[in-house]
Amino acid sequence: MRIKADITALGELLIDFTPAGVSQQGMRLFEQNPGGAPANMLAAAAKFGLKTAFIGKVGRDMHGDFLRETLVKAGINTENLIQDDRYFTTLAFVSLKENGEREFSFSRKPGADTQLCMKEVDKSILENTRVFHVGSLSLTDDPSRTATYEALNLAKSSGALISYDPNYRAALWSDAETAQLRMQSVISYVDIMKISDEETALLTPYEDPEEALRYLIRQGVRLAAVTLGRDGALIGNANGIVKAEGFSSQVVDTTGAGDSFWGGFTASFLQAETEPEHLTRGQMIEFGRVGNAVASLCVEHRSGISAIPEMEEIKERLGK
């Protein structure tokens, strides 16, 4: 056994170039920030003392080196982070609106993250993790799409809980119909799942968050959450649906908000040492508040991984 992880994630790891003012000549400046939803989620969970591991591919370039260093500093195991000199690390250029919301322009033709093959995946990691987490961006292209499905099958057959956060990015899909079909295809594997209120109609037949939650639970998802931005989150399992209220924030950048919520929530759930369907309504509210606290702190800074708060900050926001 080479790794015993609490959470292992597979997916994209990239650079977010985030606006950082203007130069003396009036040209926009961009800040190099580490990004990628699965890695953001792991970084948040690692703050709670969980053992985390990342599976993915970046280029053998300055950005890939930077991303590896970032994950190591975040306490994430990088043994199965592949650096490939045939492909360039994926880049995302982010435009921020006044309310902190984002628009994306990607350089991914192809990006290294889409070129991960199953033969490059260390199967012993998947066989020895409590939770295996994926998003949907590894499903846009092969070979990473095939690798994702094969990894899901292996992790599930080895007893891991499957965690899913679709993290829809329209610019990376050929069309909305293809995105919807592939994003929904993962649900049959899933034990625990998080979607945003903007993704309900893509992942379910319902736009209403509560109806969407009920649908996911009927489909076999054992524990699900819908994030509602500053309004908190709805969380549900067989015991019903509850709302965890959000926290006030001075929003700078919403990058990583949903990922950090799910990292904090999932870490709290794992520390409870119970099954997803056994969480009480009170526990779902409590763990949801933890996730909301993490997210509310994350959005007060630019970027994802580097904006994940420390435990002292999280406890202070929770009033502990």
Rank of each mutant, 00 (worst) to 15 (best):
D197S: 05
C117K: 06
S163I: 08
I192T: 10
R214H: 12
M118I: 15
V186E: 13
T200Q: 07
D175V: 09
S163W: 10
D142H: 04
D122S: 11
G135K: 12
S188D: 12
T114N: 07
L216G: 08
T146C: 14
E211R: 09
E177Y: 07
S124L: 01
A151F: 09
Y206W: 04
N153Y: 13
Y189T: 06
S185Y: 11
A170M: 06
S124A: 00
Q115Y: 00
E210H: 00
E199A: 06
E150F: 10
D208R: 10
K156Q: 15
A201W: 02
S157F: 11
I192V: 14
S136Q: 10
N128C: 03
E177S: 12
K194F: 00
V190G: 02
T146W: 05
T200Y: 04
A179Q: 10
S158M: 04
Y215M: 00
N153E: 15
Q115L: 05
I195G: 00
I162K: 09
A147T: 13
S188E: 15
Y149V: 09
L213G: 06
M183I: 09
S196V: 10
L139E: 07
V131D: 02
R130A: 02
E127I: 01
E120R: 02
W173V: 09
A201H: 03
S174Y: 14
I195S: 03
A171E: 15
D191Y: 12
A171L: 14
L154T: 00
V134F: 12
L216C: 10
S188V: 07
V121L: 09
L126H: 07
Q184Y: 05
S157L: 13
Q184G: 10
M193Q: 12
Q115N: 02
Y164D: 11
K119P: 00
L116V: 00
I187A: 05
T140F: 06
W173G: 12
F132W: 00
D197G: 00
D175G: 00
R130F: 02
N153S: 13
S185N: 10
S124H: 04
N128V: 02
K119R: 07
E177T: 07
V190M: 05
R214C: 05
S158D: 12
A147I: 03
R145H: 01
G135W: 05
K194S: 04
A171W: 09
R182V: 02
P209R: 09
E211D: 13
K156V: 12
L137D: 08
T146D: 06
L139R: 06
A155T: 09
D175H: 13
S188N: 10
A212H: 09
Y215N: 03
L154R: 03
I125W: 06
D175S: 02
S144G: 04
S163V: 06
E120W: 03
R145T: 11
W173Q: 11
L181Y: 13
S196M: 07
D208C: 02
V186Y: 11
